[in-house]
């Protein structure tokens, strides 16, 4: 607030007026109650910077972020399954090791570094400086998706490795199940609940990842709006976006629990 005042508003009278209008002269506790009350009525407040309603700003930024997160997930799931499948089930040790290494690299490398390097390669190909902000959807999605595929791959790999030598696979083999594809499915089923609960972690990762990816590629979206609002001291926006992220995160966790339960009958019996 003080920062905003020093930036734009000159008279302390105006500042006092604004304070009163926004309810910032009330005790913190009362401010919080007012905020909760407005929240219940679906009112997220207004931007301190532009005066636009926060819900409008979020609505404008949301589609681009959802497109990015969705495209990343579309890349992450097949890529993770492939890497994990090869690492946990592949017949050639070289390929197994390669897939495993790739999976750990994807898990560890920060999106900021890989994103900038991806942008550099693209810029080199196009030969322009600085690269245009219109990089399309797929490069950012590839960067974010490959990073998100790492944990998937690890879970699939660990699951396949642990079931690979288990008695029920031996039994299936003995019954004459030879096709590799069906045998993999047989081995993969017990790991499905673990992978389903990973979904929630992935949701958290994707949301934090979109913040970085949108900054790297100068894409409009919730993440960039969040960063800008933090730099401008526009707390209502930051609060609403983080709150929305937490809501999505908790919802994904509930969904993931449900998925895990439907994939594993043992979980259903226990509850």
């Amino acid at each position: 607030m003080a920062g905003l005042l020093s930036q734009g508003l000159t008279s302390s009278e105006q500042a006092e007026q604004l304070r009163r209008r926004l309810g910032y002269d009330l005790p913190l506790f009362q401010q919080y109650l007012h905020y909760l009350g407005r929240l219940l009525r679906g009112d997220l407040g207004v931007s301190l910077y532009s005066g636009q309603p926060v819900s409008e700003l979020i609505g404008a930024a949301l589609p681009s972020t959802i497109a990015l997160a969705g495209a990343s997930l579309l890349i992450a799931i097949p890529l993770g399954a492939l890497l994990g499948g090869v690492a946990g089930w592949g017949s050639l040790p070289t390929f197994r090791r390669l897939a495993g290494t790739l999976a750990s690299l994807f898990t560890s490398l920060p999106v900021s570094a890989t994103g900038v390097i991806g942008l550099l390669i693209l810029g080199r190909l196009a030969g322009s400086d600085p690269p245009s902000s219109q990089t399309g959807l797929w490069l950012p999605a590839a960067v974010l998706g490959s990073a998100a595929s790492g944990p998937f791959a690890r879970a699939v790999q660990a699951g396949l490795q642990s079931t690979r030598r288990s008695p029920f696979i031996l039994a299936a083999r003995a019954r004459g199940l030879r096709q590799n594809g069906r045998l993999i499915w047989h081995a993969a089923r017990p790991t499905l609940p673990a992978i389903a609960s990973l979904l929630a972690v992935e949701a958290a990762f994707l949301f934090a990842g979109t913040v970085v990816t949108e900054t790297v590629f100068s894409r409009p979206g919730l993440g960039r709006t969040l960063v800008r609002s933090i730099l401008q001291g526009d707390f209502p926006i930051a609060q609403a976006i983080v709150g929305l992220a937490a809501l999505i995160y908790v919802a994904t966790q509930v969904i993931a629990d449900g998925l895990a339960r439907s994939a594993d009958p043992r979980l259903r019996e226990r509850t």
């Binding site: 990762f205 949301f207 934090a208 960063v227 707390f235």
Partner: peptide
């Protein structure tokens, strides 16, 4: 824990100022 760690950190920076 209901807020992903990195976003929690960002929310705190938003409250305190960069």
């Amino acid at each position: 824990l209901s807020i992903p760690s990195l976003l929690l950190a960002m929310l705190l920076v938003a409250a305190w100022g960069p």
